[in-house]
Structures are given as C-alpha cells and as structure tokens.
Design a protein around this nucleic acid. Structure first.
Lengths: 234, 234
DNA sequence: ATAATAAGTGTTTTTTTTACAATTAATAAT
DNA sequence: ATTATTAATTGTAAAAAAAACACTTATTAT
C-alpha cells in the first residue's frame, strides 16, 4: 500500500463533553482518569481514535466504554492541537459535546462506571486543557440556544414549559419572564401540547409538550431571538 | 520519553479555505495539487501538520508555502475524520477558513504560485472531500454574517457601503434594500466615515468607511439582525 | 448644457419585543 | 368542607425594530 513519506503521524483523541439537564439544573458528566499520569484526577471522557474508526463512531465508543451511555447524539465542538496539551505524548484532540436528559439515561449510567454528574457551577479541577474545552462548549451551547427555539435533539421526549425555561436559565444564568418566554416558544409552532401533566414539581402540574419533529426537521435552521437583548451575551 | 502504548498514530492535515472579495464578487482560492495521486487536480491548500507545530502555525505555513499569502487570520472550521477521505493513507484533516480582501493581497499572490481565484458560483471539481469543506465554510460564513455586524477581521481596511452590501449579497445570494441595509449598519456605530471616496465604480463616488476597532473589540459578540427574515436561511 | 450613472437619504406601516400582575388548578392543612 | 399554599397559566399596552417603498444628489461623459 502506498503511503505518504516522511510525515509525522500523531495520536488523535476524542474527548466528550456531556451536559445533562435534570429538569432543574444544568450538570456536567465527568470520570476519573484511568490511564497513568494524572490517574484518578477528574477528566472528560476521552480516548484514542482507532485505525478504522471515524469520529462519530469513535466518540460513541468512548462514551459507551467510560459511562455506559448509548445513543447519545453528539456534535463536534473543536479540534485542539496545542503541541504540549498532553504532557505524555503529542495528541490532537477532537472534542464532541451533547446535552442530554439526565433522567432518560439514569439506568445506563450505573455503579459499574465511575462517572459522576457535577453542577455546572461547581466542577472540580480538570486535567490537561479539559476546562478550556468545557468553557468553549458552554459558549457554543449558549450561542445555539440564543437563536434556535429548541435545543435540538438535546431535549427529553416530553418536557414542560417551566422545565424548558429552567434549562435556558441554566444555560444563560439569567432569569426570563415566563409570559414572554412562553409566547416566543409558542410562536414557533414547534411545540405540541400533550394531554398529560408533570405533577412532580407543583400541585397544579404543568402540561407536557413534545417537539413537532416534522416541522422541526423542515425548519431546522429557524432563528429566533429567544433571550432578551442577546447583544448582552458575552 | 514515555509514550502511550499500542495506539494508532495518524496523519493530521490542515486544509485552508480562502474566500476572497474583490469589491464585487465572492471568490474561492484554489491550487493544483502537487502530490502524486490526483496530481494536477484542483484542491484546497493543504499539507500535513509537523512535529512541533500547532494548528495555527501549521495553517499559516501551509498557506504561505502554496500561495505566498502571509498574515491572513484564519478560523477553525471543522475536523474531518472519515476513514477513507484520503485514498492514499488515512488522514484526519482540520479545515481552516478565512475571508480576505483580494486587492490587499494581490502582490503576494503572484505568478510564482499556481493559485487561482474562482467565482464562488463557478468552481471546478475538487479532490477528496474538499467540496464538502467549501460548502460547510460557506454555511458558516453565512451564519456569522447574519448575526455579526461586520465580517470580523475579514474586511478590507477601507470599504464603501455598496461594497459591503455586495459582499453580503454575495454571501447570501440575495438582494438587500440599500436604505435598510445602510441604516442597520450605521446603527451599530461601528463604522467611521472617511473623507475620501472610492471613484472606481461610479461617477458620484462612494465614501469609504473604516471599522472602529476599539468599539468593535469591546463589542465583539454584538448580534444584529443584518439580513431580513433570517428564518428563511437554509 | 444635458444625459447618464450609481450613491445617498426619510417616512409610514407593520411586526416584534418588552414590561408588567391577576387568575387558575390542584393539593395539603385545618 | 373550607381555606391556604404553590406554581402554572394567561393578556395587554407601550416601545422598539424591521420592512416596504422612490426621489434627490453628486459627478462625469457627451
């Protein structure tokens, strides 16, 4: 087989940033590093890409191996290429991120795995450049959320308006007006009201909604000024 | 030196997507591939990352080597990791892109290099997955242009409002209303009117403007609905 | 002097966004 | 059974932004 000559071949890693939402708070999933050097320190879920594996397969495999999570839709965040970002050996890392419904994956994420959810505002020190990765992912989540009515595939199947608002408030660390928030979402016509209610969080109960997937697919790129004064975003 | 064991090391390439604007039309810079296999075919400017080189140095070096261009600010687009994207040998490619003022770099891009500008709407067939890269870069350019008042570092030093409008019209392939476009831009207070005019394109001449860099830096993330009905974007 | 060309500019209407508070449904306590 | 409690739900008016629309102006060439 022909190959390119005299070129440097480099380790390529994938790191997964998994945000979770439990209906109230935004959290970050972390594991304790298994490899030598910094072993035991908190870290994103990471591993090396294999010979015949592309990024999406690789990221799915790594997430599965380290947390048990399957079927999580991840999106590419950024490729990190600093020469000394991994002190053991030069490694390029392609970071992937997702936002999932914590409850939906509760069972998969069992005791066998040493993965833990941390409140996004109270995370431990991370190895290498992982904090930088998390910060960038938060920024990207905000950016997307600011202009897209729904956080993509990232929502639970069924959700209430107060939950959705909490999610946005978690992401933006800001309080929104209930009436205006609701009106803007309804105006997208992407929400289908269900007949049942979530009674967990109030006596009255809040109606569930589902995403109208047909409309959403047809309207993937619909922009919406969901938060007031987006110009105030950092 | 310690290394990670039993892991696959892979070639990492950088490919550069350079859009250019000549005051009228949006163009794409291409070169004829120098390496064997598909030699002579049109291609993005690409090369392998070297041992002690990070992405930004690497992309600058590759662009310089193949086109003579220096000092171009590029931004990371996406990492492409399909297993067989390069038929010679597995290669991961990190794509970088930029939008530059064609006239400003005219001298650097001389006959020594076999780089050519193509109208964005009339580009030749490209090797590998380079067309996919270009398409994604166009999409990202649109996304940025839709919400950011000025195309970042991507503008010529001095520009006229009609030129800027042409640029946006090129990017969006859509005609805007002069009055509304002008009013929206002026409302950002980021433009400083100059005393001289560009007399190239009309008898009356159009006043030059410069970007207020102080304000821009302070306001980097300001969002602005610069195009009508952004929801109509694909 | 006049014609030709593209730049520059204002107003009205419509739509969107914002600010703001009372009512309702369900349950728990008395 | 009544009442208290809690959080969900809903409307309106004022302000701001966006969109639609066409004439005037500066300059050069004829």
């Amino acid at each position: 087989m022909v190959r390119y000559h005299k070129q440097t071949r480099i380790l390529v890693a994938i790191d997964c940033i998994i945000f979770g939402f439990d209906g109230t708070e935004l959290k970050l999933l972390l594991v304790q590093r298994g490899l030598e050097y910094e072993k035991g320190k908190w870290s994103l879920m990471g591993g090396f890409i294999q010979k015949d594996e592309d990024f999406s397969r690789g990221s799915a495999r790594i997430l599965k191996e380290l947390t048990g999570l399957e079927g999580v839709y991840m999106e590419q965040l950024y490729a990190f290429g600093e020469v000394n970002r991994d002190p053991i050996e030069r490694t390029v890392s392609v970071a992937y991120f997702a936002l999932i419904d914590i409850h939906q994956y509760e069972k998969q994420l069992n005791e066998d795995y040493h993965a833990e959810w941390f409140p996004i505002k109270d995370t431990p020190k991370l190895i290498f450049d992982h904090q930088q990765m998390v910060d960038m992912a938060k920024e990207k989540l905000r950016y997307k959320a600011a202009f897209h009515p729904i956080l993509f595939e990232l929502l639970p199947e069924k959700f209430t308006l107060p939950q959705l608002q909490s999610l946005y408030e978690g992401i933006f660390d800001y309080q929104f007006d209930k009436r205006n928030f609701s009106r803007k979402l309804q105006s997208t016509k992407l929400l289908v009201k269900q007949k049942d209610k979530d009674k967990e969080s109030s006596k009255k109960g809040a109606f569930y909604y589902k995403l109208d997937k047909r409309r959403y697919a047809a309207n993937f790129h619909a922009f919406l000024n969901l938060i007031p004064n987006p110009g105030n975003l950092k």
